[in-house]
Structures are given as structure tokens and as C-alpha cells.
Amino acid sequence: MMSRFHQDLDELTEDVVEMGELVLEMLDRSVKALRDGDLEAADWVIQKEKEVLRLDSLIEDEAVRLMALFQPMAKDMRRLATILKMITYMERVGKYGFNIAKATRSLEEYEACCTMPSLPEMADIVIPMVRDAVMSFKNQDIALVADLTERDDRLDAIRKKVIAESLQYMKDNPDRIPPCVYYITISRYLERCGDHACKMAEKVVYMVSGKRIQIK
């Protein structure tokens, strides 16, 4: 028979996965909103921020409750410690989705410029990175995140390209600076999401194996 503690810990794990799926959906929809100028999608993301904050507090409270009441050890303690870190990283990813959605609203008055297509290209790399980090946590399968360093390198390369191209574009078109500033900022958000995916993966490796690794 499974102990009460382990049942609660498994339920908490499901909540963490739910939060991960929510922030992934927010990031995905925010980039689609940006690409398609879909303000409805942007609004959906913006109004989901509260849900992320709710889950963040709920999971943190439950993790602290389990630690206080059951004094977990070994892999149970590692899982709770990982959960407390994971939700912080996931909350940031949700916040970046929120920021991209807000930026999409602000960009409504501007015409898209040439560097914009690179942003969905970054999203195509970073969203699977975050998804694999969440899934590796769910399934305790660290093979999913084995190549995160390479993926993050590719992400950084596109980000550099966005900055270089935006700068050039702004020089050539001084009247088009505002959208480019937004694009540079959004590329920064996406790049940070990649970093958070790497940090999540580091924690999952610790949770599964007890070993500390550094992905970047």
C-alpha cells in the first residue's frame, strides 16, 4: 500500500506537470499571436498569468507542508527540492509568454519587419526544450534532455542574428526603431526560456541521480 506521503507527493508532481503544460501553452500561443498578429491569442495568454501565480503558490505551500509534516529523505527530498526550483523556472517561462503577449499588443500599431520571422524560429527550438525538461521531470527520464546544450547553442546563435539584423535594420530605417526594440526584447525572453529549460534539466538530473551537473 502506498503511504499517504507518497500519494501526496505524486499528486504534487502532477500539479507541477500541469503548471509546466500551462506555461508551455502560454509561450506557444504568445509566439503564434506575435507571428499572426492574433490579439485574441495574446489576450488568452495575458489572462492566464494569474493561474500560473496560483499554481506557483499552491505547489510551494504543498511542498513546504510535505517537508514539515513528513521530513522526507533521499530521493523524496530531492524531488521536493527540485519541485521548488522547477516552479520558479516555470513561473519565469510563463512570465516571458505573458510579456511576449503584451508586446504583441503593443506591436499592433507597427508593421512587422524583416527580423520577425527569426522569433518563431527561436520558439521552435525553445518550446521543445522546455517541454522536454518538464517531461523529463514527469517521467524521470534524463535522456530527453541529453542534448540541451547543443539546442541552447543554436538558440543563442539565432538570438545573436536577431540582434545584428535588427541593429542594421534600425540604422537603415530610423523610423522603424520601436518594433525592432520589441523584437530584440522578445528574442531575449526566448533566450532566457532556453536558459530556464537548462536549469530545470540540471535539477531533474539531480532529482533522478543525486548528481549535480552543469548544462551551460
Binding site: 529523505m73 533521499a74 530521493k75 530531492r78 541521480s209 543525486g210 548528481k211
Partner: peptide, 11 residues
Amino acid sequence: IFTRPTQELTE
């Protein structure tokens, strides 16, 4: 022993 035991039985 309490954070990363090596033996499954200990864990």
C-alpha cells in the same frame, strides 16, 4: 546516506 544513498535497500 540521507540525500543520495547508493544502495536501493537504504533508499
